[in-house]
């Protein structure tokens, strides 16, 4: 009885304020899409980092012949210098470095010819044109700075290079895009809160007669307010579901069907990630509705 009555009231309320309800749904939809997009972009960044940071290394390039770097004043790195560096890496950097690999000039040339069997831009190179280096695989790729502090400026080291730097611009761009989306989401969420508040207020005012009688005959506070709360919650929930649907479509068609075909060596966000974001979006929607109803209803339907 109670449930059926409340649901009837909710349906009537939704029907009576249809245009407002639709606008609540749309605003929630758009704002939560932005929230979801920001979350997915963050997931994408994390995925890329996870994938690529496994591959990246810190390269410690040793002085070649004729380098102008101050640490290379004595010419090409000597055997002693290399041994000493190896010693330093083993002792001072033992906690940071997971794996050390020394790439001699010959190794470097081998890798080079594999990449460019016909020479580079028409120039035939020899092993002497290559540069010897230590390739350090770090336990945590973010700790590049420690390695740099220890090794940079030592005799025989020309330059310490972090391969992460190559990816950094991409991550910065993705990070900024997700910040932008989050910012827009914030503005839209504010609009959604205001709109839900207004809608509930409108609904409460247009049903003042009913609520007045309900209060007089002794309906409990919850019973008076529940239909309004449910109205807001249902509208917000529909908005959230639309947002999840929209994100799913975007991921399916834009990322998986199109982007993955074009650039297939990158791990992309997938439908599973959208589903992981969905509870967050629905949670935000319900929270929005509850907060706005509580604020509004206390003012308009108090016993």
């Amino acid at each position: 009885m109670r449930l059926q009555f409340v649901l009837t009231e909710v349906l009537n309320g939704l029907r009576r304020n249809l245009s407002m309800v639709v606008s609540v749904i749309l605003v929630t939809f758009v704002s939560l899409t932005f929230v979801g997009a920001a979350a997915l972009m963050q997931t994408q960044v994390d995925k890329l980092k996870g994938d690529w940071y496994d591959l990246v290394e810190v390269s410690v390039f040793l002085c070649p012949d004729g380098s102008t770097a101050p640490t290379c004043a004595e010419g090409e790195a000597t055997e002693e210098q290399i041994a000493e560096l190896e010693q330093v890496i083993d002792t001072e950097l033992s906690t940071v470095v997971e794996q050390t690999y020394f790439e001699s000039k010959a190794d470097a040339f081998g890798a080079f010819t594999e990449l460019y069997p016909d020479g580079y831009q028409g120039t035939q190179l020899t092993a002497d044109d290559m540069q010897a280096s230590f390739r350090l695989k770090l336990v945590d790729p973010e700790q590049y700075q420690v390695v740099d502090d220890v090794l940079e400026g030592r005799a025989g080291v020309e330059v310490v290079e972090d391969q992460r730097a190559v990816f950094e611009p991409l991550f910065v761009a993705l990070g900024r895009a997700s910040m932008l989306a989050a910012g827009l989401a914030g503005v839209m969420l504010l609009a959604a809160v205001l709109l839900i508040t207004t809608t509930i207020r409108l609904s409460a005012v247009s049903r003042r007669r009913e609520t007045g009688i309900m209060r007089l005959v002794g309906a409990s506070n919850l019973f008076v307010q529940l239909p309004f709360m449910l109205e807001g919650a249902i509208a917000a929930l529909i908005g959230a579901l639309l947002a999840v649907g929209g994100l799913w479509l975007a991921v399916q068609y834009l990322v998986l069907d199109w982007l993955q075909d074009a650039v297939d060596w990158v791990a992309y966000v997938d439908v599973g990630d959208v589903l992981a974001v969905a509870p967050l979006l629905i949670g935000i929607a319900v929270l929005l509705a509850v907060v706005s109803s509580v604020v509004t209803l206390n003012r308009y339907t108090r016993v």
Binding site: R209, E210, G212, I213, R215, L216, V217, G218, A219, S220, N221, V303
Partner: peptide, 22 residues
């Protein structure tokens, strides 16, 4: 205040303007 509804269930009220739901 949460006991007010139970008080009002023991009181009936009639107004000059009827206050029926149209």
């Amino acid at each position: 205040s949460w006991k007010v509804p139970s008080l009002r269930r023991s009181i009936g009220v009639v107004f000059q303007d009827f206050r029926l739901l149209p």
